[in-house]
Computed example of a mutant assay.
Amino acid sequence: MNNSVQRQPANSHEPSHVLKAEARNLSFFYGDKAALREVNLPVHARRATALIGPSGCGKSTLLRCFNRMHDLYPGHRYQGEIRLYPDDINLLAPETDPILVRSRIGMVFQKPNPFPKSVFENVAYGLRLRGIRQPAELEARVERALRDAALWDEVKDRLKDSAYALSGGQQQRLCIARALAVEPELLLFDEPTSALDPLATASIEELLRNLKVHVTTLIVTHNLQQAARVAEFTAFMYLGELVEFGPTEVLFNAPSQKQTEDYLAGRFG
């Protein structure tokens, strides 16, 4: 890792060399099986970073380390660190509360998973858990989150309707609004468009490009064109290892590793 990389507080105009987080020598084990080996990954503030690679290469496993999702299941083990800046805390340290980690690092899953509640209550859910009870503040923050998720104009007259009445693409944007409402510092996306049709996919991709004003994003995708469209940085993973990382345009057009070149050319994967 280049020691010149700056680690300083985030603001709305961070240069691309400021980090929001980084994995350092990160390995992860399911029981005795190593799913990740010595991964070093910088996550640049207010930028989108894509994780690409063939199925089973460790992309989603790596993503879920960032918010300690693996803690919900037995038999796991971490080695190494994930640092979160500007605090410079190790998210994987035993003394770091995973609930606190998840309050700062949100996640959007492959399939839309709205709660069996109204549109409004889906977005307000995390706010209520944070102790926000004043109706005016709840309404303002729900509206802001729905606007940030490019959904407000479509649902502003349907806030009391069930979230299940929305289309698949709308449900996914609702889940993004729910994550945004609590103002996460880092937002994780695990194949966020793989269950959506092309029109809904285009809508989510436009949203991903616009989200960088608000939050740092880390995105797992099998869609190479999607990575090229939405991410400033891309990491190629293979067999639990990070093979290559760099600016997306450079990695796609002039990869330094033969494995990366072969994957991008469709020779395997």
Rank of each mutant, 00 (worst) to 15 (best):
G168S: 04
P192E: 02
R68K: 11
V182Q: 12
E244S: 07
A200V: 00
G131D: 02
L41R: 01
N67G: 11
R158G: 03
S103D: 13
E14I: 10
A165L: 14
P94I: 10
T49W: 09
V250E: 15
E244W: 05
L92A: 06
L199M: 11
L264Q: 04
V250H: 12
I82V: 15
R7L: 06
G126V: 11
L63Q: 07
H44E: 08
A200W: 04
R102W: 08
A181E: 10
S162M: 05
I219S: 05
N90Q: 08
R133G: 04
A227I: 08
P112L: 10
S256C: 08
L41N: 03
S103G: 04
A177C: 06
G31E: 00
P255C: 08
D88Y: 00
L239K: 13
P54K: 00
T216Y: 12
N25S: 14
G106H: 08
L211E: 01
R104H: 15
E249K: 15
M1H: 13
G58A: 10
H222N: 09
K160D: 12
H44L: 00
A195H: 03
R144T: 13
P112W: 09
L186G: 12
N11Y: 11
A195D: 01
G126H: 10
E232D: 14
H44F: 14
L166P: 04
P9F: 07
G56S: 13
D148E: 13
D97S: 13
A231P: 00
V213F: 03
L138G: 06
P9N: 07
L51C: 09
E205H: 02
Y125K: 00
R104V: 07
E139R: 15
W152N: 01
A200Q: 05
L84E: 00
L239Q: 15
R173M: 01
D88N: 15
K212S: 08
R83V: 11
Y78E: 04
P94N: 11
F252A: 08
G131V: 10
R128T: 13
R158K: 15
G169T: 05
L151V: 07
T234C: 09
G168E: 01
A21K: 10
D157F: 09
C65M: 13
N210P: 00
R24Q: 14
H214K: 14
L91V: 12
L180H: 08
L174K: 00
A35P: 05
L187H: 01
P198E: 05
A45E: 11
Q259N: 06
V215D: 06
D71Y: 04
C57H: 05
L51H: 07
V142R: 08
N67L: 11
